[in-house]
Amino acid sequence: MSELCVLLVDDEMELVQAMAERLELRGFTAVGVRSARDALHALDEDDFDVVVADVRMPRMGGIQLARRIRRKHPGAAVVLLTGHGSRRDAEEGKKAGAMAYLAKPIDLADLIQVVRDAVSAKKRRDSS
């Protein structure tokens, strides 16, 4: 049985592809897309446990995407990634509904832990 189902969103497609390949080697189902719009399409088509999205993307960034996910796909937990690691982004991300926040470059083990924690925390929050 597959581990969690993860949707990776970053305009850096090479990053998304490498992360997806590594997660799949660890038993996750991972799908990578290069924009927030593509992510929303993917969420309309399939169920994902968690969405890992970059904060800074053209057109729609990760924080705006997190808000849209909270409204349209409340079942998915959101983890945000950033190249800057600013506290303001972290606070805005939290307000937008993100469960966690990681600064690039990330450690895959950290990402996996954060993904699992985010999904568990979301389940707890939704059931309370």
Binding site: E12, E14, L15, A18, M19, E21, R22, L25, R56, G83, H84, K104, P105, I106, L108
Partner: peptide
């Protein structure tokens, strides 16, 4: 600030790709 953001992105990608190589070696 803009350029360091780009460098960080490149480093993040390099880290993931080298990690993938290492994963394949482990396997």
């Amino acid at each position: 600030a803009g350029i360091t953001h780009d460098i960080r992105n490149s480093l993040a990608i390099l880290k993931e790709i080298s990690g993938l190589l290492s994963d394949l070696g482990d396997a």
